[in-house]
């Protein structure tokens, strides 16, 4: 195992561990902070997999903007940690966990049994190259997505307005 593979497994462990902690926390604040850690791990994985521009965007958009928005809403609403009897908690987690673990096991088996599994090469797509590709091949999709953001903005404004 070389240095790159070791880094990959370390980052994978950090990402999976912090995500698992995030989805099981009762306190929303703790969950969000753990999720920021998970997104940082994913950003480093992106960097390792040869996408430095996407790694920067992951930190700026996911770990920065989206998580700060979550924190802002949680602070604004003054959410108390919900008291929930442990039995009801387990009743929802058990089926979700069992079914999810089964389908995950099937997925892992299929992936590992597929064979013909080449090692990933080391390569980097520079931001200049990536931007040129994006706006040459997918310029129309970029326009549509910007329109989607506008629609989301209008929708959020409409839902968030105070009724008189």
């Amino acid at each position: 195992m070389n240095l790159y593979a070791g880094t990959f497994y370390l980052l994978a462990a950090v990402t999976l561990g912090s995500t698992a902690l995030a989805v099981t926390r009762r306190n929303l604040m703790h969950a969000i902070i753990y999720l920021v850690l998970s997104f940082f791990g994913t950003a480093l994985l992106f960097f390792l997999l040869g996408a430095p521009f996407l790694a920067a965007l992951e930190v700026i958009i996911y770990a920065g903007a989206i998580m700060v928005l979550f924190l802002f809403i949680v602070m604004m609403l003054e959410i108390r940690p919900a008291e929930q009897p442990w039995g009801a908690y387990l009743r929802q987690w058990l089926p979700a966990g069992v079914l999810g673990a089964l389908s995950l096991a099937a997925l892992v088996l299929i992936i590992l049994a597929a064979g013909g599994d080449p090692s990933l090469p080391l390569a980097v797509a520079s931001p200049r190259e990536f931007g040129r590709f994006l706006f040459q091949k997918y310029w129309f999709a970029v326009e549509i997505v910007s329109f989607l953001l506008l629609v989301a903005l209008v929708g959020a404004l409409y839902l968030g307005r105070r009724e008189e």
Binding site: A5, A12, V23, L112, D117, L120, P121, L122
Partner: peptide, 22 residues
């Protein structure tokens, strides 16, 4: 000059997806 096998990244993504779905 190589990283991990491709399937390992897919397993990692599958695990993350499972956590989110659960």
């Amino acid at each position: 000059n190589s990283l991990v096998p491709y399937s390992h990244t897919l397993v990692l993504a599958g695990g993350l997806f499972f956590l989110g779905a659960a």
